[in-house]
Each structure stands twice: as structure tokens, then as C-alpha cells.
């Protein structure tokens, strides 16, 4: 049990996907204008990550033993189709949620965080439960990073930023500070 908790905390804080592994930077800089949309995208990501973790575990356990060189190709195909299926399922079950998520669902396909999750899970040889804990932690970590960035940027709209730092420059500096703060978790669990 403590093993699972540790995997979750590690993915959430110590090795935060966005701020220390640079995964999922596109939504991090792209859709963090408002806290609400950022959190929504994060939650959609958590769902897709959990489903991906199960699928990747299945592929690793039963299919790729025979042909490990097909890993990258099969992962990307499975992730792309899973997102498509999730999208169709949500559309059928809850049209309201589908409208609320809007463009973000298909965007998740090209999100390196999902693919990174699949690769890390494989490299570390996680089992099904460990994979799920890892996916939950990574998803929560991404949501946390998105929400933090979005709330800072909401404040930034009211602040006076030097004209040459407007836009991407200031976002990168903020990301650097956030990442620095997350470095503080680095010693966690070392003892």
C-alpha cells in the first residue's frame, strides 16, 4: 500500500509531469488563461490518463512481449483511438459535459503527457495497480500545475508587465519560479 501511495505522491509532487519533466507544456502555456477551463482540462486529462494506464498495462502484459519494437507505434495508435472512443462515449452519455469540454478532449491526443505516461509506466515496469496510481498522481499533478499557472495569469492580466515581457516571456519566467518551488519536494521520500 505504501508503495502505491509513494508512486502517487512522487508523480504528483516530486516528479511533477509539467514542472519537472516538461510534459504537457502545450496546454500549460496554451489554455491557462482561466482557472475554470484549466481545471476542466486537467480533469479530462486525469480520466484519459487512467484509461491509458489500463490499456498500456494490457498491451505490455499480453501483446508487446512478442514484439517490443512495436511499442511506440502501438501506444500512439491506442492512445489516439482511446481518446476518440472516450469522446464518443461522453457525447452519448452526457452531452452537457461534452459541450463543456469542447475542443479540449481531442487536443488531449497530441498531449505529450499522455504518451509520456505510457512510456514511463513501461520503463519502470509498473503493474496494473501501480500504473493506475501513477496515472492518478500524474493527472492530479498536471491539473495542479495548470490551475496554479492559470490563477497566476488571471492576476497578471491586472498587473503592469513590461511590454517586451508580455505573452510568452513572462509565462516562461513564471513557470521557472513554479518549477523552482516544486524542486523543494525533491528530497521527499529520499530517507
Amino acid at each position: 500500500m505504501s508503495d502505491l501511495t509513494w508512486i502517487l505522491i512522487s508523480a504528483l509532487l516530486v516528479n511533477n509531469f509539467t514542472l519537472t519533466l516538461f510534459l504537457g507544456l502545450c496546454p500549460f502555456f496554451g489554455v491557462t488563461g482561466k482557472v475554470e477551463t484549466a481545471v476542466r482540462l486537467g480533469v479530462a486529462n486525469i480520466a484519459v490518463m487512467m484509461i491509458t494506464a489500463v490499456a498500456v498495462w494490457f498491451l505490455n502484459a499480453f501483446v508487446l512481449v512478442e514484439a517490443p519494437y512495436l511499442r511506440i507505434i502501438s501506444f500512439i495508435v491506442v492512445i489516439a483511438s482511446l481518446v476518440q472512443i472516450t469522446e464518443m462515449a461522453i457525447k452519448k452519455i452526457s452531452p452537457a459535459l461534452f459541450r463543456a469540454l469542447g475542443i479540449y478532449l481531442p487536443l488531449i491526443t497530441t498531449n505529450c503527457a499522455i504518451f509520456g505516461l505510457a512510456i514511463f509506466q513501461t520503463n519502470r515496469g509498473y503493474g496494473l495497480l501501480q500504473g493506475l496510481a501513477f496515472a492518478l498522481g500524474a493527472g492530479l499533478g498536471l491539473t495542479l500545475a495548470l490551475a496554479l499557472m492559470a490563477s497566476i495569469r488571471e492576476r497578471l492580466d491586472l498587473a503592469e508587465v513590461p511590454s517586451l515581457a508580455k505573452g510568452f516571456g513572462i509565462s516562461l519566467i513564471i513557470a521557472s519560479c513554479l518549477s523552482l518551488a516544486f524542486m523543494g519536494f525533491a528530497g521527499l521520500g529520499a530517507g
Binding site: F22, L164, A165, G169, L172, I173, A175, S176, S179
Partner: peptide
């Protein structure tokens, strides 16, 4: 470390903007 990556690119972007 990771923060240095964000910082270096950020300063690079500031220079380009300037």
C-alpha cells in the same frame, strides 16, 4: 535542473522581444 530550462528560454524570449 528543470527551473534553469524555463529560465534560460524565458530570458532568450525577452532578448528576442527587446
Amino acid at each position: 535542473l528543470p527551473p534553469g530550462g524555463f529560465l534560460t528560454l524565458g530570458i532568450g524570449m525577452l532578448l528576442i522581444g527587446w
